[in-house]
């Protein structure tokens, strides 16, 4: 059943990677600017080197149901997702552009709330939205609203997701699994005494301080596919193994118990306000402290180390056993067995 698009092709896992590698990338003969990072690298952003400057460019589409969820909404998601993609490439965001597709019949009040939220996130990062486009499709053709956001940034030193070297440490800048689980829980009728909020947040300020400390060898934005997908990408591209210590992974108790309830692995759940940072051993502690000084980095932790290897992610479990962390296939689904 290879000839039809399935929902899982958008799940951020291996099926999506195969679709992009086998169908999309080979379609374009010109897929990079001379000397820059292009499409084949499938990194969080691409680079345009112009007389000594590294312009970083990224684009992403955002669809989420419901549009407004605890801790965020589709507007904040679009802005933060784009800013974070630029940030993990080492780029200060310069400007954003968004095109919004609306369903006929959508109350204008909903659009007003979304663009207002987008503005608040733009203000928080201090970056302008300088271009845009609006389209309307017939009722029923689209679920309410969809946003595509593009961003341009400037990087003094470009950081890729494939620069890890044995001995480096791995840092998670926050607790994992909050975003996707807060959405899944609404659908599965889970309630929480303290509401489980999405972690959607802009991380450029934090990463700017991290880059100032130095020693960063790789970074990645673990959205769909979770940290499992992102770490597998990083290990494969860097040609190393990553050893993860389960005991050190920052995860909120409510996320752990809700994930256990639904038979889900928190490592595979999407995050929207967490970055993965690979850093030289000597600088790891200093970088960790820089992250923790930021309001979105309070729960950051050193969660693993990089070893010689061939692209595997290995987890040392709570009881001292070891297992391979696999690249997720598609989007995680509640299991009963």
């Amino acid at each position: 059943m290879k000839d039809v698009i399935k929902l899982e092709h958008g799940g951020g896992g291996r099926l999506m990677r195969e679709l992009v590698e086998e169908v999309i990338i080979p379609a374009y003969r010109r897929n990079r600017v001379e000397g820059g990072i292009g499409l084949p690298e499938m990194d969080d952003g691409a680079t345009i080197p112009i007389d000594g400057c590294n312009i970083v460019f990224t684009t992403d589409a955002y669809t989420v149901r419901p549009l407004f969820f605890p801790g965020g909404d589709i507007g904040r998601l679009a802005i933060c997702g784009t800013v974070n993609d630029l940030a993990v490439m080492g780029a200060a965001p310069l400007a954003l552009a968004t095109s919004i597709v609306l369903e006929e019949g959508l109350p204008i009040e909903v659009l007003r709330r979304v663009v207002d939220s987008m503005n608040r996130s733009l203000e928080e990062v201090g970056v302008p939205l300088i271009a845009g486009d609006t389209k309307v499709v017939e009722h029923g053709e689209l679920d309410k609203l969809m946003i595509n956001a593009s961003g341009v940034g400037l990087a003094e030193r470009v950081v890729t997701d494939g620069g890890l070297r044995p001995g480096d440490r791995i840092i998670f800048t926050g607790t994992i699994g909050n975003h996707q689980l807060s959405l899944l829980s609404i659908r599965e009728g889970l309630q929480f005494e303290a509401p489980l909020e999405s972690d959607v947040a802009p991380l450029w300020d934090m990463i700017r301080e991290v880059l100032r400390v130095g020693g960063v060898t790789a970074m990645k934005d673990p959205t769909r596919g979770g940290v499992a997908g992102a770490l597998n990408d990083m290990a494969r591209k860097s040609g190393v193994d990553i050893l993860l210590w389960e005991e050190e992974i920052p995860i909120r108790g409510v996320v752990r118990s809700a994930a256990e309830m639904l038979g889900l692995d928190p490592l595979e759940l999407a995050n929207e306000g967490v970055a993965i940072i690979g850093v030289e051993r000597e600088k790891a502690q200093e970088v960790l402290e820089a992250v923790r000084r930021d309001r979105y980095g309070r729960d950051a932790a050193i969660v693993g180390e990089v070893l010689e290897g061939k692209g595997r992610v290995i987890l040392e479990t709570l009881v001292g056993g070891r297992r391979v962390v696999r690249e997720p296939l598609g989007s995680p689904m509640p299991r009963i067995c």
């Binding site: 692995d265 987890l315 479990t317 709570l318 009881v319 056993g321 070891r322 297992r323």
Partner: peptide, 9 residues
């Protein structure tokens, strides 16, 4: 068994 890596123990 798999998720706790018990076989390695």
């Amino acid at each position: 068994i798999t998720h706790s890596g018990l076989r390695a123990l």
